[in-house]
Amino acid sequence: MSESKPENQLDKKESASKSHEAEVEANPLADDLVGELVRRFGESYVIKSGMVGGVPSIQVDAQQFVTVHAYLKQHPNWQLNYQSCYTGVDYGEELEVVSYVRSSSLLHMVCLKTRVSKESPRLPTLTTVHPGANWEEREMFDLLGIEFAGHPDLRRIMLWEGYAGHPLRKDFVEPQEESYGPST
């Protein structure tokens, strides 16, 4: 069951983002965002763009995730200096990292995303741009098993050291009653 569910989800995600593509035209903020990044970094930079829940969203390569955050943080037209929500989602083959950043002066919000494969879920840390990302990344490391290269203190935060598995992954199997508790 856990096998089929994420795939099912993936299909639906594809169709959902397709249906959103029409909306992109209507939203100047989303257009600007894509245009801005394409102008600065080139066509290949933006993997996917669209609207998610009324918020302009773009997906970039995992290695460029930090660069985009840093660029949009200092850019006078964007000033995305405040990270509201930072989390990860398991989509079966891939893990998606989602970051909602907003501007404290211009009041807009943008959703930045990236994807990493489940085999090597590794991407550079965002703590260099948003120090507040520290614990959220530890939580993602703990519950989703995503590794953040360069993170100052990458340890489990909610569960104990030695806990087997990452509960927020869709293929996580709940351990038997007797195996609960610290392993040492």
Partner: peptide, 8 residues
Amino acid sequence: PAGEYYTS
């Protein structure tokens, strides 16, 4: 409906 939503 399928999609992602964030409100605060």
